Computed example of a mutant assay.
Amino acid sequence: MGYEDLDISALLLVRCLPGYPYKCPKLQIIPEKGLTKCQADTLLSLLNDQANANAREGCVMIFNLVEAAQEFLSEIVPVGQSQESVCYPHL
Rank of each mutant, 00 (worst) to 15 (best):
15 R>D: 12
16 C>V: 14
16 C>S: 09
17 L>G: 11
18 P>A: 03
18 P>D: 15
19 G>Q: 05
20 Y>D: 01
22 Y>A: 12
23 K>V: 13
23 K>G: 11
23 K>A: 13
23 K>L: 07
24 C>W: 01
25 P>G: 07
26 K>G: 03
26 K>L: 08
28 Q>T: 14
28 Q>G: 14
28 Q>C: 11
29 I>P: 06
30 I>Y: 10
31 P>A: 06
34 G>C: 02
34 G>Q: 08
35 L>M: 11
35 L>F: 04
36 T>N: 03
36 T>H: 01
39 Q>V: 02
41 D>N: 06
41 D>G: 05
42 T>R: 02
42 T>F: 02
45 S>A: 10
46 L>M: 06
49 D>N: 12
49 D>K: 13
50 Q>E: 10
50 Q>F: 11
50 Q>W: 09
51 A>Q: 07
52 N>P: 00
53 A>G: 06
53 A>D: 05
54 N>Y: 03
55 A>C: 08
56 R>P: 14
57 E>F: 12
57 E>Q: 14
58 G>M: 07
59 C>H: 15
61 M>A: 01
61 M>N: 04
61 M>Y: 02
62 I>K: 14
62 I>N: 11
63 F>P: 13
63 F>S: 13
63 F>N: 10
65 L>V: 12
65 L>D: 00
65 L>E: 01
65 L>A: 01
65 L>P: 00
65 L>M: 04
66 V>S: 10
66 V>C: 13
67 E>F: 11
67 E>S: 09
68 A>C: 06
68 A>F: 02
69 A>D: 06
69 A>V: 00
69 A>R: 04
70 Q>N: 15
72 F>C: 08
72 F>L: 05
73 L>K: 01
73 L>D: 05
74 S>W: 10
74 S>T: 15
77 V>G: 14
79 V>F: 11
79 V>H: 06
80 G>Q: 10
